[in-house]
């Protein structure tokens, strides 16, 4: 296997896309995923120093499941187009600087501005620095989601359509693929089947809007990250997902990400032009989201067990599926 020298190729890509007067500095890899890489770096140019991020999928012979929910997700070019459209519509997210092409030899990816702030839940929920952010964050998340759900028009890339029933079947197949019995997950599948909402008017859905995928400063929400699970579907899926217990990081009483209330999220959503929120539909997606995350824990464990990526971290995540089982029983019984 050839190891790609990312900084060297990145320096060349910067020359190609930004001009000869621009030089690379301080390149460092941030995340250690097998199928996705994030690099932080600076570009020194005529107008000063720009702090930037590279998000890329290394070229590979055998395609891997790209996302933690076991679905393919959108590619990085589509993600960059979506992020540009979202930013143009007033959603707080990073400005895309340029998109990689085949001549860059860096795989599928794009470069964007690096926004200062915190993504680590424990710090956002407990550090004094974010005490001013916590009370306003749920409302800001509601506002961001309303703008995302209103995205449309010619600049928006084509996104996969994933309604509730489609996703139910996808996750049903994923669980069946493992073969081990899960009575609690079965109870949740059955409940979801019997409470399946009527098809929603399709909207642009972020698909992974949650604590961990937002950058927060003392002033609150600064950027929405990780658009790879974006799709066209029921917008209430985003409101339910941001509420699941896994994203509260132990602060159980604050339903939204451990920092805010569903009332504040909905108030921010409706004030920013979002549709009237049907709380039963949000609850359906909260239950579904909890089940999805439980099955995702199993997917990650199997990524290790199958030998695709051997990792003690992936292995032990398999034992976290029962956290989601308890969350489900707490919601359903």
């Amino acid at each position: 296997m050839t190891v790609i020298d990312v900084p060297t190729l990145l320096a060349r890509a910067i020359h190609r896309h930004m001009g000869d007067g621009h030089g690379l500095a301080n390149a460092r890899r941030l995340s250690g995923g097998a199928s996705r890489e994030t690099w932080a770096f600076d570009v020194a140019g005529p107008d000063g120093t720009l702090p930037l991020i590279l998000r890329r999928d290394p070229p590979r012979a055998v395609p891997l499941p790209e996302t933690s929910d076991g679905t393919r997700g959108i590619d990085r070019i589509t993600e960059a187009m979506l992020q540009k459209a979202a930013r143009a519509a007033g959603v707080r997210c990073a400005d895309v600087t340029f998109t990689l092409d085949a001549d860059d030899e860096l795989g599928d990816g794009y470069v964007m501005e690096r926004i200062e702030g915190e993504t680590i839940a424990r710090k956002i929920l407990r550090d004094a620095e974010y005490a001013t952010a916590r009370p306003i964050l749920a409302g800001q998340c509601g506002e961001a989601l309303a703008r995302i759900h209103a995205l449309s028009g010619p600049d928006l890339p084509v996104l996969p359509v994933r309604d509730a029933r489609t996703q139910w079947s996808e996750f049903r197949d994923l669980l069946d693929g493992f073969g081990d019995p899960h009575p609690t997950f079965e109870l949740a599948f059955r409940w979801l089947d019997r409470h399946m909402p009527a098809p929603a008017a399709p909207r642009t859905v972020h698909g992974d809007f949650r604590m961990g995928n937002i950058i927060v400063g003392p002033d609150g929400l600064r950027a929405v990250l990780d658009w790879e699970l974006a799709h066209v579907g029921d917008p209430m899926a985003d409101l339910g997902w941001v509420c699941i217990n896994a994203w509260r990081f132990g602060v159980l009483e604050n339903q939204v990400g451990g920092f805010g209330s569903l009332d504040d999220l909905i108030a921010g959503y409706e004030a920013a032009g979002g549709m009237a929120v049907d709380r039963e539909r949000v609850r359906f997606w909260e239950v579904f989201g909890t089940l999805k995350w439980g099955i995702s824990c199993k997917i990650m464990a199997w990524t290790h067990l199958s030998g695709t990526t051997r990792s003690v971290e992936l292995a032990t995540i398999g034992r976290r599926a029962c956290e989601n089982e308890l969350d489900l029983l707490d919601l359903l019984l």
Binding site: T184, R248, V251, R319, R320, E323, L326, D327, L329, L333
Partner: peptide, 20 residues
Amino acid sequence: HLMTTVLDKLAIANPRYALY
């Protein structure tokens, strides 16, 4: 039965889990 089973799993997997 389901609740007891899941709580027993968490007693092994993660007894510090807040909801547990």
